[in-house]
C-alpha cells in the first residue's frame, strides 16, 4: 500500500512560499489548519485583531526560531564588522613587520585582541591583525560576486524563462557552454590577462564564470510562476510585460534565488582564497586570507598558526554563509523540512 497523503501539518499557507493546493475538497489536516490559521480572525465582516502579515514577516517569524540563523547571523555580523571597521578589533598595522623580534613567534592564547594573540608570521607581522584585516577582501569579493552573479544570472534566467522560444534556446545553450568551464579554471585563465589584479578584477572573473547556476534556478522558477493563475489573471486585466515580470513574477521567484545566492556566497569566498593561494588572485600588499595562506604554506611545520588562523577564519566564514542560506531556505519554504 502506498502510504502517501500523510497530512502536512505545517500550515503551508501561513509561511509557505507557495501554498499547497489540495483544493478545498481535500480534507487533510493541512487544509484544516490552513483554514484555521486564517480564521483566527473569525468570520466575514467581523473586525479582527489579527495584523496583516506579509510572507516576509512570516519568514522572519520562522527565522527567529532557528538557532542556525542566530549562530550564523552573529558570526556574520562579527565578520562584517571586521571587514568594515577592522580597527575596532585591532590597532596593529597588518603590514608592519618586525622580523627581529617576532619571526614566527607562536600564539599567546591569553592575550585577547592583542597583536601577539595569534602569534606572528614569517615576516614578523601580527597574524591577528592580518586575519582581521583580511576579512575585508574576502567579504567584499564574496558579496560583490554574489550581487553581480544574481544580477547577470537573474536577467538571463528571467529572459529565457519568460520569453521562451528561440531566446530560451540560445540563452540556455549559452548557459550550458559556460557550465562546462569550471569556475576555478575559468577564473585562473581570465585573471592571467590582467597584470594589475585588484578585488574588482577578481570579482569580474568570478562573475564571468559563476552566473549560470542562478540563471538556471531563475529560469526554472520563472517558468513555473509564468503559468500561475495570478499571472494569467494579470494578463486578463491587460497588464503589460513589465508589470507582469516585475510585480508578479519577480517577487515570487526571489525566494529560491536568495537561497542559492547565499549558499553560493561562501563558495565564492573560498574560490577567491584559492585563486590568491595559487598566486593568481589578489597579490601582496593587499591583505587577504588567501594571500596569507599562500605565503605561510612553506612554514607549515615551523609555524602552523600562521596558516591555520586565516584558514580557520575562511572556513568559518564560508560555513556561516552556507548555514545562513540553509536557515533562509527553511524559513522561505517550510515544506522542505
Amino acid at each position: 500500500m502506498p502510504d502517501n497523503k500523510s497530512p502536512q501539518v505545517t500550515p503551508s499557507s501561513v509561511a509557505g512560499a507557495g501554498p499547497a493546493v489540495t483544493g478545498g475538497l481535500a480534507d487533510t489536516a493541512a487544509a484544516g489548519v490552513a483554514v484555521a490559521a486564517e480564521l483566527a480572525a473569525g468570520t466575514d465582516k467581523q473586525t479582527s485583531t489579527e495584523k496583516a502579515r506579509s510572507l516576509g514577516q512570516d519568514a522572519w517569524r520562522e527565522l527567529r526560531r532557528s538557532w542556525l540563523f542566530w549562530a550564523s547571523g552573529i558570526l556574520l555580523v562579527l565578520l562584517i564588522l571586521m571587514a568594515a571597521w577592522p580597527t575596532l578589533f585591532t590597532d596593529v598595522d597588518p603590514r608592519q613587520a618586525d622580523l627581529r623580534n617576532h619571526y614566527l613567534t607562536g600564539p599567546q592564547w591569553s592575550h585577547f585582541f592583542q597583536a601577539d594573540w595569534f602569534g606572528y608570521n614569517v615576516q614578523g607581522q601580527s597574524v591577528y591583525a592580518r586575519t582581521v584585516h583580511g576579512a575585508r577582501a574576502s567579504i567584499i569579493v564574496g558579496v560583490c560576486v554574489t550581487l553581480a552573479v544574481t544580477l547577470v544570472g537573474g536577467i538571463v534566467g528571467m529572459l529565457a524563462g519568460y520569453f521562451g522560444g528561440w531566446l530560451d534556446t540560445v540563452l540556455s545553450r549559452l548557459t550550458d557552454v559556460f557550465f562546462g568551464i569550471p569556475l576555478l579554471l575559468g577564473g585562473l585563465v581570465l585573471l592571467q590577462a590582467f597584470t594589475n589584479r585588484t578585488i574588482w578584477t577578481v570579482t569580474f572573473a568570478l562573475t564571468a564564470f559563476g552566473w549560470m547556476q542562478i540563471a538556471r534556478v531563475m529560469r526554472g522558477a520563472v517558468i513555473t510562476q509564468k503559468e500561475a493563475d495570478f499571472v494569467t489573471a494579470a494578463r486578463a486585466l491587460g497588464a503589460g510585460t513589465g508589470r507582469i515580470l516585475f510585480r508578479h513574477i519577480l517577487p515570487n521567484v526571489l525566494g529560491p534565488v536568495i537561497v542559492v545566492a547565499t549558499i553560493a556566497l561562501g563558495g565564492y569566498i573560498a574560490t577567491e582564497a584559492t585563486l590568491s593561494y595559487l598566486g593568481i588572485g589578489l597579490k601582496d600588499p593587499t591583505v587577504s586570507w588567501g594571500v596569507d595562506i599562500s605565503a605561510s604554506q612553506k612554514d607549515l611545520r615551523d609555524g602552523p598558526h600562521a596558516l591555520l588562523m586565516p584558514a580557520g577564519f575562511l572556513s568559518l566564514t564560508v560555513l556561516a554563509f552556507i548555514l545562513l542560506g540553509d536557515a533562509v531556505r527553511d524559513a522561505l519554504d517550510p515544506k522542505l523540512r
Binding site: 507557495g18 501554498p19 493546493v21 478545498g24 495570478f230 494569467t232 489573471a233 510585480r247 517577487p251
Partner: peptide, 9 residues
C-alpha cells in the same frame, strides 16, 4: 482556484 489566482506577495 482561489489559492493560486491571487499573488501571494
Amino acid at each position: 482556484d482561489p489559492y493560486t489566482s491571487l499573488n501571494p506577495r
